[in-house]
Amino acid sequence: MNFDWATFILEIINFLVLIWILKHFLYQPILDIIARRRAGIEKTLADAHQTKAEADKLKQQHEKFLAEWEKEKEDAQVRLMAELAAMRENKLAELNAKINEEAERRKVLDERAKREFERRMEEQGIAQGIAFTTKLFSRLASPQLEAGLYALLLEDLHGLSKENKRVITEATAVPELQIKVQSAFPLDENKQNELTHHLSDVAGRMLPIEFQVNPDLIAGFQIVIGSWILHANLRDELKFFSGSLQHATAGSQ
């Protein structure tokens, strides 16, 4: 248990040197690396917090966008429904208009078809009536009937107005004009002379007259004076009668 001053002093120096050694080769490097690690951890934590904050912010933005989008979607749906309803109303109105127009057109067409049918029926009736009458007159045609028509012809020639006579006189002013007289039955000599006399009276001068027999007239006469044609026969009367009926039917429709 001796006390050695040299060992005592050297031990103090040794310990101070050991403090320096450990401070420079142990404490400082280890504390530095620990501090760096802590700084790294804190930085990572700070980055994580920042990232979390950014993520929260992005999440809020995303939720905000979702809410806005949802609202826009609902608005768009409402607008779309309104547009669809309006479009449907328009289409329905157009369809109703077309239906009404089509119904009107159909009604007009039906009316027209009906009128056309009625007109055809009337024409057919008139034609059948005319045919029947023609057939009846053809069977009733005889020299006696023609004699009666001859009397009516003479009466009509006598009854011509001055104006008609003047027009006929002007029409017979053509040189070398020949009057053509057609009858359903042959005329005897007396009637030819009598008729020549009356026609010359109407024309105002003596004209050559050619007498012809035309059974198509059924009964009666047809006199051609230039551009004038005088009808006094059943065929033309029936034609006039048929034309008048058709004209009257067309006028009523």
């Binding site: 050695d4 040299a6 060992t7 050297l10 040794n14 050991l18 050694i21």
Partner: peptide, 18 residues
Amino acid sequence: FAITSIVITTWGIMLFLG
């Protein structure tokens, strides 16, 4: 200074730790 075995051991410890 008399360098004893104790001091030598201490130096050895210092050398080892260093």
